[in-house]
């Protein structure tokens, strides 16, 4: 007896689904159109304004010139040469800072007294603008890779340390008690409760420190270097080569973006158990 008439309820459901899809689609279309328009207006407007000398091309350059400069730098191999410097400084400093940050957080939370003794000093060190230490670091470590690595590591260390401590300290006291009653040792507590709980906090810190670790490396390059994207940018000031500066800046932004995108799947995997809570995390 399958009469092919939709009940009113079915029809309502269908209409709701269609409406939702339509509004989603129209939203997506308008957003993407808007983005496209904005891109065209920005790039085209810049280009035109520079051509018509509404903007002084010596100072603002223009998109086509920047693209050309980028291509020349890339073709001559100098872009890759400088990128290698910056990447090495960043990668080594970031890894070092992150590792030290996590280890320090674990050690200092093991027992209460050392933590409370050291806390004000760590906060004071945290309060010192680390970038301001740049010249001192250069004075100490010269103009090679080392001072940049140290700067990148310092920029990474504190945030990773702070966030990991917050993570460790936010472990539920109830759960600690439950596990102690179950017979858990201190090592059990760290391995099975405290560290897994703190991991998302650490990962958030890692994501946030990627750009600032690169900032540390670049400042180091400004203060004295023989290579690196920061050095490349700094060098152009005397030549007023805005196109090359912009090309190098764009490359830096791309590096930051790539690293953040690389961390995303890791974060998603660590937080995989949260999927029922909502996909926007």
């Amino acid at each position: 007896m399958a009469v092919v008439t939709l009940s009113r309820a079915d029809r309502a459901l269908q209409r709701a689904a269609e409406d939702a899809q339509r509004s989603r689609r129209s939203w997506a279309v308008s957003v993407w159109l808007g983005r496209l328009c904005l891109l065209v207006v920005l790039i085209g407007g810049w280009e035109l304004a520079a051509d018509q000398h509404l903007l002084d091309p010596t100072f603002t350059s223009k998109p086509s010139a920047i693209a050309r400069a980028w291509w020349q730098l890339a073709a001559s191999g100098s872009l890759w040469h400088h990128t290698q410097y910056t990447l090495t400084e960043f990668a080594v400093g970031f890894a070092l800072g992150a590792l030290l940050g996590v280890v320090a957080a674990c050690l200092l939370t093991l027992s209460d007294l050392p933590y409370r003794v050291l806390e004000p000093y760590l906060l004071a060190l945290y309060g010192i603008p680390k970038l301001a230490l740049g010249p001192l670091i250069v004075l100490w470590f010269g103009v090679g890779l080392l001072p940049k690595i140290v700067l990148a590591a310092m920029m990474t260390f504190f945030l990773v340390y702070m966030n990991t401590v917050v993570g460790i300290r936010s472990t539920s006291g109830d759960m600690v008690n439950v596990m102690r009653v179950m017979g858990a040792t201190r090592w059990d507590l760290y391995r099975r409760l405290v560290l897994p709980h703190a991991l998302p906090y650490t990962l958030t810190a890692l994501r946030l420190t990627i750009p600032i670790a690169i900032v540390g490396a670049i400042l180091g390059e400004f203060l004295g270097a023989t290579g690196g994207l920061g050095y490349l940018i700094y060098e152009q000031v005397t030549f007023l080569a805005v196109d090359k500066m912009m090309a190098a800046i764009a490359t830096l932004a791309a590096i930051v973006l790539v690293f953040r995108l690389l961390l995303l799947p890791l974060e998603r995997w660590v937080n995989r158990h949260d999927k029922a809570i909502g996909g926007n995390g």
Partner: peptide, 29 residues
Amino acid sequence: PRAYAIVEPFLLAVYSIPSVAIGPLLIVW
């Protein structure tokens, strides 16, 4: 919200520029 959705990728791109890096550019300007 729609305007935000439109400019979001642009903001993300600008946000990814290491803040220090635009220093020399500002000196030139």
